[in-house]
Design a binder for these strands. Structure first.
Length: 354
DNA sequence: GATCCGTGGGT
DNA sequence: TACCCAAGGAT
C-alpha cells in the first residue's frame, strides 16, 4: 500500500467517525497542552472533567503559573500520576518567565519543557502550530503494528526507532495535524486493543495483520509488571476536630500529597500491640486518647503496588497538650478538604469523616 | 534503560 | 479473579 493512500483512508474515516472533543479543532497551545498532559495514560472519559476544571480555574498559562502547587495538585486529585501536575505547574512558570507567556512553537523547543516528552511535543507542535512531526502513542503503535505487520516488541528500545520511522513514512505533506488526530482516533475507536471489528474496517484489505490472522497478537508487548505488596496502618489523629496531616516528600507514591501518620510493614501485622510497639509518639498518644474506629482493610491497587491499608482513628483528649512530630501539622476539616490527597486517603475521609 | 509513577474501566 | 491498558515521562 502506498503511504499517501493509508493517510487518505484514515482521514476519510476520521471525518466520518471522529468524536466531538473540546480540545479538537482549536489552536490555543495552552489548552492543547493541558489536554495532552491530562490524557497521558488516561482515558478520555476520565480526563474530560479535569480538562474543564483546569481551563475554568486557570484560563491562561499565567493563571496557572501564579497558583500554589498545592492547589494545582488538589485540582488534579483523583487523576493519578501526580508528577504530571507538578510538572504542569513547573512548565507554566517556565513559559511565563522564560518565554514571555507564549508557548514555544517548535517540536524541539517544546521538548525542553518539564512533562513534555516526544509524544506531547509532537502533539502540540502539529495541532497548535502545524509542524510536520509524527505523533507516536499507544494507539499509533497498535495501528502501525497491525496494518504493516510490524512485529517488533513495543516494550523494547528498538521499537521506538522502528515505529517512529514508520509513523514518519506515512505522514502526508499537508494536513499533518488532521492525520495525527486521525491515526490516534482510529486506534482508539476502530483498531481497538481487544476484539476490533475488522469487518467494518476501511483498511481490511490493506491490513497485514488481518491477512495473516495476527490481529489478536499485534502489537507484540513483552513486559509484565511485577506487583509489590505493602501493608499500611494509617493513624488518623484528631483533636478538637482538627486533623494531623503529613506531606509526602520522599521518593514514593503520592509525592506532594497529604496523608496521615503512617506505620508501614512489609508483611501483614495484625496485632495492634505489634503495630504500635516501640513507637514512642503513638504510645504517648494512646495514653490520652480513644480509639474511635478500626477500619476494615482497604485494598488499593496501583500499577506496581498493592497496598493493604487499615485506618486507626484516634481522638485525642481535648485538654491533652500534644507535641506533634515536625512532619505533622494540624488542619481543620475545611483545610483537610482543600489539601491534595491520594484516592486511598480521600476514600477514608469520604467514608467516615466528611 | 528498566523501573517507577495512579486510577478506573473492560474482559 | 486477574489481567490488560489508556493521547507517556522522568529517572
Amino acid at each position: 500500500m502506498q503511504d499517501h493512500i493509508f493517510s487518505q483512508k484514515l482521514i476519510t474515516w476520521y471525518n466520518q467517525h471522529k468524536r466531538d472533543l473540546p480540545w479538537r479543532d482549536i489552536h490555543n497551545p495552552y489548552f492543547i497542552w493541558l489536554s495532552e498532559v491530562i490524557l497521558q495514560q488516561t482515558r478520555v472519559v476520565q480526563g474530560m472533567p479535569y480538562y474543564f476544571k483546569f481551563i475554568e480555574t486557570f484560563p491562561t498559562v499565567q493563571d496557572l503559573a501564579v497558583a500554589d502547587e498545592k492547589d494545582v495538585l488538589r485540582l488534579w486529585q483523583g487523576l493519578g500520576y501526580y508528577s504530571r501536575a507538578r510538572n504542569l505547574h513547573t512548565t507554566a512558570k517556565m513559559v511565563v518567565e522564560n518565554y514571555g507567556g507564549k508557548f514555544p512553537n517548535t517540536y524541539s523547543e517544546l521538548l525542553k519543557l518539564k512533562g513534555i516528552g516526544t509524544y506531547t511535543a509532537a502533539a502540540i507542535a502539529s495541532f497548535a502550530f502545524g509542524e510536520k512531526v509524527a505523533v507516536l502513542d499507544g494507539n499509533v503503535y497498535r495501528v502501525l503494528s497491525r496494518v504493516f505487520g510490524e512485529e517488533t516488541d513495543i516494550a523494547s528500545n528498538e521499537a521506538k526507532k522502528v515505529f517512529t520511522k514508520l509513523a514518519e513514512a506515512v505522514l502526508p505533506e499537508k494536513n499533518v495535524d488532521i492525520h495525527n488526530q486521525a491515526i490516534m482516533e482510529f486506534g482508539a475507536i476502530q483498531c481497538t486493543p481487544a476484539s476490533p471489528n475488522c469487518i467494518f474496517c476501511p483498511l481490511t484489505f490493506e491490513c497485514v495483520a488481518n491477512a495473516t490472522g495476527k490481529v489478536s497478537v499485534l502489537p507484540v508487548k513483552s513486559k509484565k509488571v511485577k506487583v509489590r505488596e505493602r501493608f499500611f496502618n494509617y493513624f488518623v489523629i484528631e483533636q478538637n476536630r482538627n486533623f494531623a496531616m503529613h506531606e509526602r516528600t520522599h521518593k514514593d507514591v503520592w509525592s506532594g500529597m497529604y496523608d496521615f501518620y503512617l506505620k508501614e510493614f512489609t508483611e501483614n501485622v495484625q496485632a495492634f500491640d505489634d503495630i504500635v510497639s516501640e513507637d514512642v509518639f503513638l504510645n504517648d498518644i494512646l495514653q490520652n486518647s480513644v480509639v474511635k474506629r478500626e477500619s476494615n482493610t482497604y485494598t488499593h491497587v496501583l500499577t506496581h503496588q498493592r497496598i493493604y491499608t487499615k485506618f486507626w482513628h484516634l481522638v485525642i483528649n481535648d485538654d491533652f497538650l500534644l507535641n506533634l512530630p515536625s512532619d505533622l501539622k494540624w488542619f481543620s476539616l475545611d483545610e483537610v478538604d482543600n489539601l491534595p490527597k491520594s484516592t486511598l486517603v480521600n476514600n477514608y475521609l469520604i467514608d467516615f469523616v466528611f
